[in-house]
């Protein structure tokens, strides 16, 4: 796994409005910061912190929503600071998912241009893209949407200059050394390289999503 960016600095704890705290593990997206956020969020979900109502890990931070009638900011910040000690960033093992993708064609209109920009043919790109399992870095951008990373430096491209107003559910998106899966129709400036039948959002299910931050995703070309 690649290890972009510097090692982890000291986390910061700051208020986000009067009912939430943000615990930040960095100002830029790094593997170390992301792993720390995922592991810390997992540890908090198992902790009994009075007044805590929701824990969400983001790319390099953890949002903790709390009931301001049950606790106060300084008290919650103290509880969260205590629990920063002893979080094992590498100790969090999520589940593994296989995601079958139809690469290119109408399903992935940007595949050829992406491969060309990386000096690969499409078969070489697909092989390189699927080579190693990726980690779900974060969820939350849209229903069921996941960011997965990181690809090695040879597979890093900036976003498109033009935003598409809508790409269909199941679109496989590629940019910034990451692959994302759109679970609903969304606008995006990422390259669309394929589509999957894997749906990470079902509002009728008790748990509406299947992928969680920290899970491993193995991408496979649909035979």
């Amino acid at each position: 796994m690649s290890e972009p960016g510097p090692p982890l600095g000291k986390p910061t704890i700051l208020p986000l409005g009067d009912g939430a705290v943000l615990v930040r593990f960095g100002e830029t997206l790094t593997q170390a910061g992301n792993s720390a956020a995922v592991a810390y969020a997992a540890a908090l979900r198992h902790a009994q912190v009075p007044g805590m109502v929701e824990v969400v890990s983001n790319l390099v931070s953890v949002l903790v929503r709390y009931d301001p009638l049950a606790t106060a900011f300084q008290q919650m910040a103290g509880e969260l600071r205590l629990r920063l000690a002893g979080v094992d960033s590498l100790g969090f093992a999520g589940s593994e998912h296989r995601v079958q993708v139809r690469f290119g064609g109408a399903d992935g209109p940007d595949l050829e241009a992406v491969a060309h920009s990386l000096h690969l043919n499409t078969a070489e790109f697909v092989k390189a893209h699927n080579q190693a399992p990726l980690r779900v870095l974060a969820t939350g951008f849209a229903p069921g949407f996941v960011y997965c990373g990181f690809h090695p430096p040879g597979l890093v491209l900036p976003r498109r200059t033009q935003v598409r107003r809508a790409v269909p559910a199941g679109s496989i998106l590629f940019a910034a050394g990451q692959t994302a899966i759109a679970a609903t129709e969304i606008p995006t400036g990422w390259h669309v390289i394929g589509r999957t039948g894997f749906r990470n959002f079902d509002p009728a299910a008790a748990s509406p999503t299947r992928l969680a931050a920290g899970d491993r995703v193995v991408f496979e070309a649909e035979p």
Binding site: V53, E54, V56, S57, L63, R65, T139, G140, F141, A142, P143, G144, F145, A183, F201, P208, T209, A212, A213
Partner: peptide, 9 residues
């Protein structure tokens, strides 16, 4: 519909 920010809602 609280508690679903992680699901993107």
């Amino acid at each position: 519909r609280h508690g679903l920010l992680g699901a993107g809602i």
